[in-house]
Deep mutational scan, measured.
Amino acid sequence: LAALHAEGPLAGLPVTRSDARVLIFNEWEERKKSEPWLRLDMSDKAIFRRYPHLR
């Protein structure tokens, strides 16, 4: 499970980098069924690119 911001401008976004990794992994797991070539990237760089508020 990932903790998400409940309200405000960040509502629905992950609270920590660990939470972001959970979301990225879950999405990758779903997408790899139809796109088996996808690589999993959970590096800090990938997290910041996707969720800049975690910098």
Rank of each mutant, 00 (worst) to 15 (best):
L1C: 14
L1T: 13
L1A: 14
L1V: 15
L1Y: 14
L1H: 13
L1I: 15
L1M: 14
L1W: 10
A2W: 05
A2D: 06
A2G: 07
A2H: 07
A2Q: 07
A2Y: 10
A2M: 07
A2R: 04
A3N: 15
A3Y: 13
A3T: 14
A3K: 15
A3S: 13
A3P: 04
A3M: 14
A3V: 15
L4W: 02
L4R: 07
L4M: 09
L4H: 05
L4D: 04
L4F: 08
L4Q: 06
L4S: 06
H5K: 11
H5V: 05
H5Y: 13
H5I: 10
H5R: 03
H5M: 06
H5P: 03
H5F: 15
H5D: 04
A6N: 12
A6V: 14
A6E: 13
A6K: 15
A6P: 12
A6L: 14
A6Q: 14
A6D: 10
A6H: 12
A6C: 12
A6T: 14
E7D: 14
E7N: 12
E7G: 11
E7H: 12
E7V: 13
E7A: 13
E7W: 11
G8I: 04
G8N: 04
G8W: 06
G8S: 05
G8K: 08
G8F: 05
G8L: 03
G8Y: 05
G8Q: 04
G8R: 03
G8E: 06
G8D: 05
P9D: 09
P9Q: 07
P9R: 07
P9F: 09
P9E: 11
P9W: 07
P9M: 08
P9V: 09
P9A: 10
P9Y: 10
P9L: 10
P9H: 09
L10H: 10
L10E: 04
L10F: 14
L10V: 05
L10R: 04
L10C: 10
L10T: 04
L10Q: 05
L10I: 05
L10K: 05
L10A: 04
L10N: 09
A11M: 12
A11V: 11
A11W: 09
A11S: 10
A11E: 10
A11L: 10
G12D: 04
G12V: 03
G12K: 06
G12M: 06
G12F: 05
G12S: 05
G12N: 07
G12Q: 05
G12I: 03
G12C: 09
L13N: 03
L13M: 10
L13Q: 09
L13Y: 06
L13D: 02
L13G: 02
L13I: 03
L13H: 04
L13R: 04
L13S: 03
P14N: 01
P14G: 01
P14F: 03
P14L: 01
P14A: 01
P14E: 00
P14H: 01
P14C: 01
P14K: 01
P14D: 01
P14Q: 00
V15M: 13
V15D: 02
V15F: 06
V15Q: 08
V15I: 14
T16H: 08
T16L: 04
T16V: 01
T16F: 04
T16I: 01
T16M: 05
T16G: 07
T16K: 07
T16E: 06
T16P: 00
T16R: 09
R17S: 12
R17K: 15
R17Y: 13
R17T: 14
R17M: 15
R17F: 14
S18M: 14
S18R: 15
S18H: 15
S18C: 15
S18D: 14
D19Y: 04
D19R: 02
D19G: 06
D19M: 07
D19V: 03
D19C: 06
D19E: 06
D19A: 08
D19L: 03
A20D: 00
A20P: 00
A20N: 01
A20Y: 01
A20K: 00
A20E: 01
A20H: 00
A20F: 06
R21G: 04
R21S: 06
R21W: 07
R21C: 12
R21N: 03
R21Q: 10
R21L: 11
V22C: 11
V22Q: 13
V22P: 01
V22F: 10
V22E: 06
V22M: 13
V22H: 09
L23S: 02
L23I: 11
L23F: 05
L23V: 10
L23C: 07
L23M: 09
I24V: 07
I24D: 00
I24Y: 03
F25Q: 07
F25M: 10
F25G: 02
F25V: 06
F25D: 01
F25C: 08
F25A: 07
N26K: 15
N26Q: 14
N26F: 14
N26S: 11
N26M: 14
E27Q: 07
E27C: 07
E27N: 05
E27D: 12
E27Y: 05
E27S: 06
E27H: 06
E27R: 04
W28S: 01
W28C: 02
W28R: 01
W28V: 02
W28M: 02
W28Y: 11
W28A: 01
W28Q: 02
E29H: 14
E29P: 02
E29K: 15
E29S: 15
E29W: 15
E29G: 08
E29L: 15
E29C: 15
E29D: 09
E29Q: 15
E30V: 14
E30P: 02
E30D: 10
E30L: 13
E30W: 12
E30H: 11
E30Y: 11
E30G: 09
E30S: 12
E30K: 13
E30A: 13
R31E: 04
R31I: 04
R31L: 09
R31F: 06
R31P: 02
R31H: 07
R31Y: 04
R31C: 07
K32Q: 09
K32W: 08
K32A: 10
K32T: 09
K32C: 10
K32F: 09
K32L: 10
K32D: 02
K32E: 03
K32H: 13
K32I: 14
K33P: 07
K33I: 13
K33D: 09
K33T: 10
K33W: 10
K33C: 09
K33V: 12
K33H: 11
K33F: 10
K33E: 10
S34T: 15
S34Y: 14
S34Q: 14
S34C: 13
S34N: 13
E35C: 11
E35K: 09
E35D: 11
E35W: 08
E35Q: 09
E35P: 04
E35H: 09
P36F: 06
P36L: 05
P36T: 06
P36K: 07
P36W: 07
W37A: 08
W37S: 11
W37Q: 11
W37E: 11
W37H: 11
W37G: 12
W37K: 11
L38A: 14
L38Y: 12
L38N: 06
L38E: 07
L38C: 08
L38D: 04
L38Q: 07
R39V: 15
R39D: 09
R39P: 13
R39H: 12
L40Q: 02
L40M: 05
L40E: 02
L40T: 02
L40Y: 05
L40P: 06
L40D: 00
L40W: 03
L40K: 02
D41Q: 04
D41N: 08
D41T: 04
D41A: 03
D41S: 05
D41I: 06
D41W: 05
M42V: 13
M42C: 12
M42H: 04
M42F: 09
M42R: 05
M42N: 06
M42S: 05
M42Q: 07
M42P: 02
M42I: 14
M42E: 06
M42L: 15
M42G: 02
S43D: 04
S43W: 02
S43F: 02
S43I: 02
S43Y: 01
S43E: 03
S43T: 11
S43C: 06
S43Q: 02
S43G: 07
S43L: 03
D44G: 08
D44P: 08
D44Q: 06
D44E: 10
D44Y: 09
D44F: 08
D44A: 09
D44M: 11
D44W: 10
D44N: 13
K45T: 12
K45F: 12
K45W: 12
K45E: 15
K45A: 15
K45C: 14
K45N: 13
K45M: 13
A46E: 15
A46H: 10
A46F: 11
A46Q: 08
A46N: 10
A46D: 03
I47C: 02
I47V: 13
I47Y: 01
I47P: 00
I47R: 00
I47A: 01
I47E: 01
F48Q: 06
F48I: 10
F48E: 09
F48A: 08
F48Y: 15
F48K: 06
F48D: 12
R49I: 13
R49W: 11
R49H: 13
R49E: 14
R49K: 14
R49L: 15
R49F: 12
R49C: 11
R49G: 11
R49V: 11
R50V: 09
R50L: 11
R50S: 06
R50A: 09
R50K: 13
R50N: 07
R50Y: 06
R50E: 05
R50P: 01
Y51W: 15
Y51F: 15
Y51H: 05
Y51G: 00
Y51C: 00
Y51V: 00
Y51I: 00
Y51T: 00
Y51Q: 00
P52F: 02
P52D: 02
P52K: 04
P52L: 02
P52A: 04
P52N: 02
H53L: 01
H53I: 01
H53M: 01
H53K: 00
H53Q: 01
H53F: 03
H53W: 03
H53N: 03
H53C: 01
H53Y: 08
L54C: 02
L54K: 00
L54F: 04
L54A: 00
L54M: 04
L54G: 00
L54H: 00
L54V: 01
L54I: 03
L54T: 01
L54S: 00
L54N: 00
R55N: 10
R55L: 13
R55W: 11
R55E: 09
R55Y: 12
R55I: 13
R55G: 09
R55D: 09
R55M: 12
R55F: 13
R55K: 13
